[in-house]
Design a protein around this nucleic acid. Structure first.
Lengths: 229, 229
DNA sequence: GTCTATAGACGGATAGAC
DNA sequence: GTCTATCCGTCTATAGAC
């Protein structure tokens, strides 16, 4: 919030710097805490199903405080979506267009699987938003995700032309990567019910990651050396 | 509703058979119509976010009529989940355990893609329910989906032992099939935003289906003849 | 079976004391 | 910045006339 801090500082210049920092830190800490609780509640109930009262209760704050930091439920939700996208974007950059397909695709799949394991609730919020029509995410999808995708589509087509990848629609490959990696976060309740275990152990998750990498790399026929077999 | 019809018939035996059939048909027609509208609203807003008022409004009925046919919102939701599962089960049977892996897996993937195209809202309701914890689906997952999965896990392991499939965890393959095929229903809003088109044409959907079949068949290394290369 | 009216709880958001 | 009290709308579900 640097853009909001400067006008406030201009008005309250009599307050010692230490107190100003402390107040700013309180704000950041409360906002961060509310965003974390909101992530859980929006994941569990979707946008319309979530209530600000429940988010505030989880955060241990009165509902009015939530509305002090975020004027509306939608503003809180939007901030959360932007925060989730920023991590999506970090993982997306591990799809290095300079690399060989095996390295680029394998690295991206591993990064997505790690993100699903580390922050499954964020994946669920994203999935719910898209399932429910993505009306609060059009700008992110069109302005951020689509440009990223367009560059990768070009790279994949080059790999195919060089014989490093089987002939395929690049979009179908990217959708497969997203669908499979996010499945381990979004559908964890189903995985648990079908496996009979409460949650995947660290080892089981590593094994699943290798399975996914193998299935996808083999599926798209990726190889590091040029030329068909 | 045959189990509900017999006691009613015993009490109303004075009414001509034609009128009895007509009333029964009215009930079935209203229930079916309400279920279809409920499917759309639950898909758009999730269980907690959906309101019986909106479902009734879409159905062109007063809210009280909805509660006449389905005593509670949860009862309506449960009926819908069971109906959705019955179509899931029909598609699941196209994974024929007597077939070669290419035929069985290819046929199952095509059936799942066709279901995603024909009834995307049902897929979204299922996905939302699982994302939100699957608390209303534990019996279906454990009692119906798990037994189906167990039989297929055994068949897949046999194919691997016969060299008809690459060595892999059967569960990872099944999760991939579900994740990718359902992605085309659940994430249609994202696909539309990224492709710039309002909806996938019939031809585009057929092409996507073939892409998914190829990626998955190649990914699991399925071949009809026994023995490794 | 259908519908209007309403009970009673809970939703988002705000006023105003501290 | 924090919190209590409250506005007003919508929620699920039901009562009871037709």
């Amino acid at each position: 919030m640097p853009s909001a801090e400067s006008p406030i500082a201009a008005v309250t210049h009599a307050i010692p710097p230490a107190a100003r920092r402390s107040k700013a830190q309180t704000r950041i800490s409360n906002e961060t805490h509310l965003l974390a609780c909101a992530e859980a509640v929006f994941a569990e109930r979707g946008f319309e199903g979530a209530s600000t009262a429940l988010i505030a209760q989880r955060a241990g704050l009165p509902k009015a405080n939530l509305h002090y930091y975020f004027p509306t439920k939608l503003a809180l939700y939007r901030r959360l979506l932007e925060d989730i996208f920023s991590e999506w974007h970090t993982a997306a950059n591990s799809f290095d267009i300079a690399d060989d397909p095996v390295v680029a695709i394998g690295g991206y799949v591993r990064a997505k699987m790690a993100l699903s394991q580390r922050r499954p609730l964020a994946s669920k919020v994203w999935a719910s938003e898209i399932i429910q029509g993505a009306e609060h995410m059009q700008d992110i999808l069109v302005g951020q995700v689509k440009p990223w995708m367009d560059t990768r589509v070009r790279v994949i087509n080059n790999w195919i032309a060089q014989g490093k990848l089987a002939p395929l629609q690049p979009q179908a490959l990217l959708y497969m990567i997203w669908a499979v990696t996010q499945h381990y976060a979004d559908f964890d309740a189903q995985i648990h019910a079908l496996s009979g275990k409460r949650s995947m152990s660290k080892k089981a998750y590593e094994a699943a990651t290798e399975q996914v990498v193998e299935l996808i790399i083999r599926g798209c026929g990726a190889r590091s050396q040029a030329g068909p077999p």
